[in-house]
Computed example of a mutant assay.
Amino acid sequence: MGRTPEELQAARDRLVPDVAASGLRVLFCGINPGLMTASTGHHFARPGNRFWPVLHASGFTPRLLRPAEQEELLAHGLGITNVVARASAKASELTAEEYREGGRLLAEKVARLRPRWLAVAGVTAYRVAFDDKHAVIGPQRRTLGTTRVWALPNPSGLNAHWTLATMAEEYGRLRAAAWEDA
């Protein structure tokens, strides 16, 4: 899956299609696609991103899926989208306005798809997108229509504060809630 620096830069600003359908149990929401994701067309594709291992370790998937197998999530009642659609090398390249507009568009998407839970993988992105400065990891008071919202730790390898084990524990709390309210 190695990409040259030129191939990665060519993916800047590229859009990556959602993996989504109506009535999912959980629609996971990343901050925005990284260049590896945009280059491959597969969400959370950067080596070192812990999304796929955490999904498996928390019990969402029966086996460790590779990014190229992302469509298999739908069979498990899961999907993936992003707060901001455009790809960038780092989330720090995004503006507060992009986050706010992304939150508005995400609310429209959630209203259309009506997942049971929207799980935003990155509490800082959630805070800016939904103007909730005091949000913490876990279930939120806010709902989007009938959809409940959960802020999750960002699975990026750069988020060293959260280990694979502690992330799997938090994602597991969401999994239990998503299957409990069915």
Results as ranks from 00 to 15, higher is better:
11 A>L: 01
11 A>M: 02
11 A>F: 00
11 A>I: 00
12 R>W: 05
12 R>M: 04
12 R>G: 00
13 D>Y: 11
14 R>M: 11
14 R>W: 04
14 R>L: 07
15 L>D: 13
16 V>S: 02
16 V>L: 13
17 P>R: 14
18 D>R: 14
18 D>L: 09
18 D>V: 09
19 V>G: 02
19 V>I: 15
20 A>T: 01
20 A>S: 08
20 A>D: 10
20 A>Q: 09
20 A>P: 04
21 A>V: 07
22 S>M: 09
22 S>A: 13
22 S>Y: 07
22 S>T: 15
23 G>I: 02
23 G>N: 12
23 G>M: 03
24 L>Y: 01
25 R>D: 08
25 R>W: 05
25 R>E: 12
28 F>T: 07
28 F>Q: 02
28 F>L: 09
29 C>V: 11
29 C>W: 02
30 G>C: 06
31 I>D: 03
32 N>S: 14
32 N>W: 03
32 N>F: 04
33 P>I: 07
33 P>Y: 11
33 P>R: 08
33 P>V: 05
34 G>A: 06
34 G>F: 00
34 G>I: 01
35 L>I: 06
36 M>D: 04
36 M>E: 13
36 M>S: 12
36 M>H: 15
36 M>T: 15
36 M>I: 15
37 T>H: 03
38 A>E: 04
38 A>S: 02
39 S>D: 14
39 S>F: 06
39 S>Y: 09
39 S>W: 04
40 T>I: 08
40 T>F: 06
41 G>I: 12
41 G>Y: 07
41 G>Q: 13
41 G>E: 09
41 G>W: 08
43 H>W: 12
43 H>R: 07
43 H>E: 07
43 H>C: 06
43 H>K: 05
45 A>V: 10
46 R>N: 11
46 R>S: 14
46 R>M: 09
47 P>M: 06
47 P>F: 06
47 P>C: 07
48 G>H: 13
48 G>T: 11
48 G>M: 09
48 G>K: 10
48 G>D: 11
49 N>W: 06
49 N>L: 12
49 N>K: 09
50 R>S: 05
51 F>Q: 03
51 F>N: 09
51 F>D: 10
53 P>K: 10
53 P>G: 11
53 P>N: 08
54 V>P: 00
54 V>W: 02
55 L>H: 14
55 L>C: 14
56 H>Q: 11
56 H>Y: 15
58 S>A: 15
58 S>T: 04
58 S>L: 04
59 G>H: 12
59 G>S: 08
60 F>G: 05
60 F>P: 06
60 F>E: 04
61 T>H: 12
61 T>N: 14
61 T>I: 12
61 T>E: 11
62 P>S: 05
62 P>N: 06
62 P>Y: 05
